[in-house]
Design a protein around this nucleic acid. Structure first.
Length: 342
DNA sequence: TGCCAGGCGGGGT
DNA sequence: ACCCCGCATGGC
């Protein structure tokens, strides 16, 4: 591999005190919805800048190092790390609503230390597109393939190679590999979104910060292949904007069943319950139910199984343990694609 | 073997 | 504002 960017160690810090005082459990925060590329059960890679690459390597005990080629920005990077891990997010109100809620009370009792770990906006949109009209499992297998096919390798002083999520330009350079990633018709959306980012059609995050949630949703929805669900999911995952929930068929059906409202009013009901925490609650529910397909999710709710089971199949909480295994399937598809035989 | 899955856009009415 | 359909792919 030529032209591998080298990141130098900028600083070390200890975030265990901040995590503890805020009641943050770093293990759940670092492990949930992660891939083996970025979490190994002990240490996680948190991307702080996808473009001028900067990362934090954080362990579950709170020791962190910042690595970048631009160590002069280290204060910004530390602030981004604190934000990405939700260390300064006050979830008191979210927890108090959840404790009274039939779906999430058990979850927040056991998982009160979980914080959403945020990511880059472009990448959050790719995550959203891969969830469209597909099961949890299929969506994450697409994402895994995309990272394996397009991920950008950097070398980190003292840590070896780390893979970063692809940038828009990594996709645009060779969009044809998306078919190898088995994303189906979503390839056009992913490529189109990538081009929109390259052409600066998406305002920078400082500008998005100043816009109200509906405006941000509209901006993201102007991208081809991004509808309300994907826009709102990206707002939750990348911007920590929870006011507008990403409501899909899954959540709509669950809300309708559990609270006895018509599916038409499921979103209204959800927002009535969760208010400004609606988006976070939607993500929390997927964790609590291990992202089980709708039919299974409904029967788990019937049985009151409302905390993650951490069983022997992939779930939001255990995804990172399984992603290495499925890599073999992609390589097989890749080889067949490259040299079609038999 | 069809049918469906954490959507979306384009076409109707 | 609705309703309806096709869409790549994978799992059952």
């Amino acid at each position: 591999m030529l032209n591998v960017d080298m990141l130098e160690l900028c600083t070390e810090l200890d975030i265990s005190g901040m995590a503890k005082s805020r009641g943050v459990d770093l293990y759940t925060t670092l492990s949930v919805y992660n891939l083996h590329h970025w979490f190994d059960g002990y240490r996680a890679v948190v991307v702080l800048d996808l473009y001028d690459p900067a990362i934090a390597i954080v362990d579950i005990g709170g020791r962190a190092v910042i690595a970048s080629s631009r160590c002069s920005n280290v204060d910004t990077y530390i602030a981004r790390l604190v934000r990405a891990l939700g260390l300064e997010e006050d979830l008191t109100e979210f927890h108090s609503i959840a404790l009274r809620d039939v779906l999430l009370s058990s979850f927040v009792r056991m998982w009160s230390g979980w914080r959403l770990r945020s990511c880059d906006l472009w990448w959050a949109l790719v995550v959203g597109v891969c969830q469209q009209n597909a099961s949890f499992r299929q969506g994450w297998s697409m994402l895994l393939n995309i990272v394996n096919l397009y991920g950008r390798r950097v070398r980190v002083e003292g840590f070896g190679e780390v893979v970063l999520p692809p940038r828009p330009e990594d996709i645009v350079r060779d969009p044809s590999k998306l078919s190898i990633a088995r994303v189906g018709y979503r390839a056009r959306a992913i490529e189109s979104i990538a081009r929109s980012f390259l052409e600066k059609l998406v305002p920078p995050s400082e500008a998005l910060e100043r816009m109200d949630s509906h405006e941000v949703e509209d901006v993201l929805r102007s991208l081809r292949g991004v509808g309300s669900y994907t826009a709102r999911l990206a707002m939750v995952l990348a911007l920590r904007r929870y006011e507008l929930p990403p409501v899909d068929r899954w959540l709509r059906a669950i809300v309708s069943r559990v609270y006895g409202v018509d599916e038409r009013y499921a979103e209204r009901k959800w927002v009535e319950i969760w208010g400004r925490w609606s988006g976070l609650a939607a993500i929390a529910l997927t964790i609590a139910l291990d992202a089980a397909p709708l039919r299974d999710a409904l029967s788990r709710i019937e049985r009151g199984e409302l905390v993650p089971k951490l069983g022997n199949e992939p779930s939001p909480a255990t995804l990172w343990r399984f992603t290495q295994l499925t890599t073999a399937r992609t390589s097989r598809a890749y080889r067949q694609r490259i040299s079609p035989t038999s």
